[in-house]
Design a protein around this nucleic acid. Structure first.
Ligand SMILES: [Zn+2]
Ligand SMILES: [Zn+2]
Length: 289
DNA sequence: GATAACGTTTTC
DNA sequence: GAAAACGTTATC
């Protein structure tokens, strides 16, 4: 546990700091003193930024690498007039230069995001869950999961723990829940897990269904309680500069939100994330009603 | 305890 | 439905 410690939001930027410092030690040529917090995020003090928020062009000139990034930022700003809706990586090479390889936190965030999916359930975990489910139920042919050729079955990870990792399936452990769905009814794709047509009507009993729903709701809510972490890889995540102009920056005191240009793309998506179970209709399946 | 920022509720 | 405000968690 301690090995993967230090996963604070912002550590990522800390290591970049070295690379950046080497290229721009004299960044205080700017009249306004840059304030970098210990994470390396550049942001002026709230009061200062409120008094006279600098034009983006002003903190563009701080450093070559940062300048490149900020330049793209400025361009984008100019185009979108502070609406970060369409963030695209025009500045790939600029970011590449500013960021030599993955930093510690990038990797940490990546690993973290792999272990902790946005939905709280990892794909591998889901796969394992389904696999175990297939063990519990008499399945004629579970190898195919009942999908066509273009669907991709996800191999289960063997690094997962015992059945206790899946309280929903531990029929001997006291919980007593039984997985309510035939594993073949699940369609697993890289985009998410889908529930095959008629799956809901094949559940054995109403009370069991209710119980299973309760169990799932409990597990889901327990997982959903956890705060998601930024991916650390998307362009906004890689940005280290608070624009100080967006509403989140200006309103930091009460808003408690990260700069809109730094908001992780993954976190922008709704928490259900990649493991949303979909009904054939396309509507999301509700674990609890 | 300070700070950053995600999640939820409230407001518009 | 989007933005603001608030509550809360996570890290140092
Ligand atoms: Zn901002
Ligand atoms: Zn991200």
């Amino acid at each position: 546990m301690s090995a993967s410690g230090g996963l604070m939001e912002g550590n990522q930027a800390r290591e970049d700091e070295d690379a950046r410092d080497s290229c721009c030690a004299d960044e205080e040529t700017s009249p306004v003193v840059e304030r970098r917090n210990r994470s390396g995020i550049i942001s002026t003090p709230l009061s200062k930024s409120l008094k006279h928020s600098r034009a983006l062009s002003q903190y563009i000139a701080t450093c070559s690498a940062a300048a490149a990034v900020a330049n793209a930022n400025a361009n984008r700003l100019a185009q979108s007039s502070l609406v970060p809706a369409g963030i695209k990586s025009h500045s790939v090479d600029a970011q590449h230069r500013g960021q030599v390889g993955l930093t510690k936190l990038d990797r940490g965030a990546l690993v973290s995001s792999l272990l902790d999916s946005p939905s709280g359930l990892h794909l591998a975990q889901a796969a394992e869950l389904l696999r175990r489910a297939s063990m519990l139920l008499p399945v004629s042919d579970s190898s195919n999961l009942g999908v066509g050729g273009d669907m991709e079955a996800v191999s289960a990870s063997d690094s997962l723990g015992s059945v206790t990792d899946f309280p929903l399936l531990s029929n001997g452990g006291g919980v007593g829940g039984t997985f309510p769905f035939h594993p073949g009814l699940f369609i697993m794709t890289p985009a998410g897990v889908f529930l095959a047509d008629g799956a809901l009507s094949q559940v054995t009993g109403a009370s069991e269904q209710q119980q299973a729903h309760n169990e799932m709701a409990a597990a889901a809510s327990a997982n959903a309680k956890k705060k998601r972490k930024r991916c650390g890889l998307c362009p906004p995540c890689r940005r280290r500069i608070n624009c100080e102009q967006c509403s989140s920056c200006r309103n930091r005191k009460t808003g408690h939100q990260i700069c809109k240009f730094r908001k992780c793309e993954e976190l922008k998506k709704k928490p259900a994330g990649g493991l949303e179970v979909m009904l054939p209709t396309g509507a999301p399946f509700r674990w609890f009603q």
